[in-house]
Design a protein around this nucleic acid. Structure first.
Length: 928
RNA sequence: GGGCGUAUAGCUCAGUGGUAGAGCACUAUGUUGACAUCGUAGGGGUCCCAAGUUCGAACCUUGGUACGCCCA
């Protein structure tokens, strides 16, 4: 059944229809039990998310590959689902509560989590609906969620296994604490930004007013400063952390401070009578050339200080609470300070006792860290102990979700031994077992993986996978899949409490390539579709997700997660800046779909996706691809109205006519180029190949060439053959274009009356090759047509007027084409009649095709001067070329050392231009 | 401080050693029953700079310059 097509393609009219048809008929995952597997897992978008332009790129590329492989007969599985996105989702729901003057802590944990689930059921489907609008052919029948029951089981199993293997452990170290979200986050979730700040220089007085001679020398050892000091000068960007100092450190080689190493100095803040004393120690960390060369050591609030404190057994005093305000718990300051002085004088305490000690002076307690900073500075200044303050750019850590300054805090968290897990992924990429495309990313990958730090995976949230660890009254931990198992480990009657924390979202999404297939059960899907074939992701989640999938894949499955990792760039705004809500330059992909159709947006994404480069948004280009869809639409319409039917066979029909043989050869070549591009994941090359074949070859030349045949007697063999070839070629175009433009191709395919849908069709296989004679003939016609049009244009002769042409001594090619294809020449070049023989004398236009010259008498019509100018211009150009080639060919070095084919080509080009020069000279002579 | 990338027509970008390309924009033009979301013809480039390798460099090497990104 064929259906008549409208004059203009209206994407909106067909997209929804085809999508639901495909989904309802199960076309996204046809039953192909015996076929080779091809598997992609979709990077699960946040369940809170909505489709942004980056998703549009990422998913378009995946859909192109999966549709391509489906057409090629593979058992193509595209796994889809959403991520519970711990922090992001909890934030969304908490914000909703806030709008109603409500808050999370008004609820029990279970009730709050129930509320999140409720929200997820109601609003979680936004992005999945939007992916459908883009035409993405995922297997929705098995839609996954990282907190599905089976997925949760997988997460717990991995945690328990890692724990039993010693690869997950609890540790007290500095974590990145987000005081807004009140949770620890991983290093990757911290963004370091340079901000304007200050460097304060303070005097730390020596104990009991002791003095020493401070001597400063220049590079040559000359004394530039010598004075008696009763203090040591300390520079800091964070004065509020002074309250937690455990020592002052100087470099062991720093002669300036050698006299006072081992002595005590006073932290110049807090009530005078309880000033804390801390030792002056040596460590390699302080840089003698930076600041004063002396560094205060606050092990509990600075990464570098933490290292110094650990090496030197310096106590680390925690100063802040969960919102980064100065602590107000514990004993009064006087008592705490007394204990601290005992410690400084050699008393030892265990870590828990140190942690319990609140060394914030009473008047600072409860202050926000920045308020405390102001007060510390003011108090020291008032005491006359501030030396100076400089303006300085400070590299400051921010939480990528909460957007506030991260506070390093010393606390217990769960860590994954990432270094160990990184070993096999590193080896796999080195050996080529996993290929990263483009390969330039390998260096970045190695650099990160080889310097990987323990991964903090516990989060102080409610929404997520709760850590399967239980503690008894003594704090002993029992890790197990269930509370029953933990109880069994602990023994009957031991009271257990479960760890309050949940796991980092990326801990679970790392399992996506196999947990979505049913693992830990050994399902058929796991058997057949793990390892996956390919992963496509933005480079921005290379470490967050891709690298961790590798770790999880090798650890749990003992195999790579996928054969290939394709990394694409960012979609940027038209001016090249990053799109962001705050800048207001975000382009909504759905708006583009509304305006130009999903096919146009998809084609844009593909055509712009060259490896290793970001994509700049260019709406004109999207519009151009909308036009391309319309062009194809109209070509199909033309075929339809000329009785061109559908093809019965995938192989090219038999053809005797040059135009038909030619298009078959061109199509075979196109298919080959396209397949090569797809194999190399060169989406731009693939898109451009099919684009130019459709527009330049098929529409501009082939359809024009066959018009005379189609519009003549329909019952001739030539007409029948032409309809068969045209129908076949159009069908092959629809197949090749389908991965890129699924909607318009499916609509056209069905309008042509095919018995099955294109989405489950068969990939092209022309079983034909280029016919040299046909190519020569058609190239000759194209040559002649182009030359004639150009000459007419330059001479101001109407493009439509038919002109008589003469050719004196046609080449064999010319003679045969003139005989067989005069109708095409008449139609395209508008030369008719063509007479073999001498042209009448008089002014004429002369055009060339190959080595043949046509004389078109135009006595009294053309401006002879203009024609002469035209010919002379061409003559000069050919002479220049000929001369340049002659120079090259007369260079012995070139002839002897260049590749033979290069020499051959130069000779051929030279001969051509020499002939052209002769021809043009003759033409000019004829003109008189 | 370390690493990576980019620089080609007015704009957005292809081009992996043989002498420069596409789309858009621009100029001129409008003809045939698919298409004006179209057709035809045309103008437009020190391929960032410098040196080197080579018979030959947009492409390879080295050193700059500018812009961007990542890590510390």
């Amino acid at each position: 059944m064929t259906r008549e097509l409208d004059k203009t393609f209206d994407p909106a009219a067909i997209e929804a229809k085809w999508y639901s048809h495909w989904e309802q008929t199960g076309a996204f995952r046809p039953e192909r039990p015996d076929a080779e597997a091809f598997t992609i897992v979709n990077p699960p978008p946040n369940v809170t998310g909505s489709l942004h332009i980056g998703h549009a790129l990422d998913n378009t590329l995946q859909d192109i590959v999966i549709r391509y492989e489906r057409l090629r007969g593979k058992d193509a599985l595209w796994v889809v689902g959403t991520d519970h996105a711990g922090i992001a989702t909890q934030m969304v729901v908490e914000r909703q509560l806030e709008e109603r003057q409500d808050k999370r802590t008004n609820y029990s944990r279970d009730d709050f989590v129930a509320k999140v689930w409720e929200w997820k059921e109601e609003s979680g489907g936004t992005i999945t609906r939007q992916l459908r609008r883009l035409g993405c052919s995922m297997d929705w029948s098995r839609e996954q969620f990282t907190m599905d029951e089976h997925f949760t089981k997988a997460v717990l199993k991995v945690f328990v296994d890692l724990y039993n293997d010693g690869l997950i452990y609890r540790d007290k170290r500095l974590v990145n604490w987000d005081p807004k979200l009140k949770t620890a986050i991983s290093d990757l979730e911290v963004e370091t930004r340079d901000v304007n700040g200050h460097m304060w220089h303070f005097k730390y007085p020596l104990e009991g007013g002791q003095t020493y001679t401070y001597v400063e020398r220049d590079e040559d050892g000359n004394v530039v400063l010598e004075e008696e000091r009763d203090y040591i000068s300390i520079a800091t960007t964070r004065p509020e952390t002074m309250l937690g100092d455990g020592a002052v450190a100087v470099h062991p080689d720093d002669a300036r401070y050698a006299p006072i190493v081992g002595k005590l100095c006073e932290i110049p803040v807090g009530p005078k009578e309880h000033r804390r004393l801390i030792p002056i120690i040596t460590d390699e960390y302080p840089d003698p050339d930076f600041g004063s060369g002396a560094v205060k050591i606050t092990g509990a609030h600075d990464e570098n200080d933490f290292g110094v404190a650990q090496r030197n057994g310096i106590p680390m005093y925690r100063l802040m609470d969960e919102v980064a305000a100065m602590r107000s718990d514990g004993a009064p300051y006087a008592e705490a300070a007394r204990r601290a002085i005992e410690i400084a004088r050699g008393d030892t305490l265990d870590a828990a006792e140190v942690d319990a000690l609140n060394l914030v002076p009473d008047e600072y307690r409860g202050l926000d860290r920045y308020e405390a900073r102001k007060k510390v500075v003011a108090d020291i200044d008032a005491e006359g102990l501030m030396i100076m303050v400089e303006d300085k750019k400070i590299a400051q850590p921010f939480g990528d979700r909460g957007g506030v300054v991260i506070e390093p805090m010393l606390m217990d968290q769960w860590y994954v031994a990432a270094k160990e897990l990184a070993k096999r992924p590193i080896a796999a990429v080195k050996s080529g077992e996993i290929e990263i495309v483009p390969a330039t990313w390998e260096k970045t990958f190695f650099n990160w993986m080889e310097n990987i730090q323990p991964w903090c995976v516990s989060r102080q949230l409610w929404w997520g996978h709760r850590i399967p660890a239980w503690y008894d009254a003594d704090g002993k931990v029992y890790v197990a899949m269930t509370e029953e198992e933990a109880q069994a480990q602990a023994g009957d009657g031991v009271a257990l409490t479960r760890d309050e924390d949940v796991l980092d979202t990326w801990f679970s999404s790392a399992l996506w390539p196999f947990a979505t297939l049913g693992w830990p059960d050994n399902t058929d899907l796991v058997q057949k579709h793990y390892p996956n074939s390919l992963l496509i992701s933005g480079f921005d989640i290379l470490f967050f997700w891709d690298a961790r999938m590798m770790m999880a894949g090798y650890y749990n499955m003992d195999e790579r997660p996928w054969e290939k990792l394709y990394l694409h760039g960012l979609v940027r705004a038209a001016d090249g800046s990053k799109m962001s809500k705050s800048k207001g330059n975000v382009v909504d992909p759905l708006g583009l779909i509304d305006q130009y159709g999903a096919d146009a947006l998809r084609f844009f994404m593909a055509a712009m996706e060259s490896q290793g480069r970001d994509i700049k948004m260019d709406e004109k280009r999207v519009e151009g691809y909308r036009n391309f869809a319309t062009k194809l639409w109209n070509a199909a319409r033309f075929c339809q109205s000329n009785g061109v039917g559908l093809s019965k066979h995938i192989a090219a029909p038999d053809a005797r006519m040059a135009a038909n043989q030619w298009i078959i050869g061109e199509l075979a070549q196109t298919a080959e180029t396209l397949e090569k591009a797809m194999a190399e994941l060169r989406f731009d090359a693939a898109a451009n190949t099919i684009y130019h074949f459709v527009w330049d070859r098929f529409c501009d030349w082939y359809l024009e060439l066959i018009k005379p045949v189609l519009q003549g007697d329909p019952d001739t063999d030539a007409a029948k053959e032409t309809r068969a070839v045209a129908g076949w070629a159009l069908d092959q175009i629809l197949v090749m274009l389908h991965p890129f433009m699924p909607f318009v191709t499916e609509e056209l395919w069905n309008s042509r009356g095919h018995p099955h849908d294109l989405i489950v069709g068969e990939w092209v296989n022309p079983q034909a090759s280029v016919n040299k004679a046909a190519t020569d003939a058609i190239d000759w016609v194209i040559d002649l047509t182009t030359a004639t049009r150009s000459a007419r244009n330059e001479l101001g002769i109407s493009p439509s007027e038919k002109l008589a042409a003469f050719i004196e001594a046609p080449s064999g090619l010319a003679a045969s084409v003139i005989e067989r294809s005069s109708a095409a020449i008449e139609r395209l070049a508008r030369l008719s009649p063509i007479t073999v023989g001498e042209a009448p004398a008089g002014a004429a236009m002369q055009v060339a095709a190959g080595s043949d010259t046509f004389i078109v008498p135009l006595e009294g019509v053309i401006d002879v001067g203009a024609e002469r100018a035209r010919l002379e211009k061409a003559l000069v150009a050919s002479q220049k070329e000929a001369k340049s080639l002659e120079g090259r060919l007369s260079n012995a070095n070139f002839v002897e050392r260049a590749k033979p084919e290069a020499v051959e080509k130069a000779r051929a080009d030279h001969a051509h231009h020499v002939a052209e020069v002769e021809r043009l000279k003759a033409a000019l002579e004829r003109l008189g």
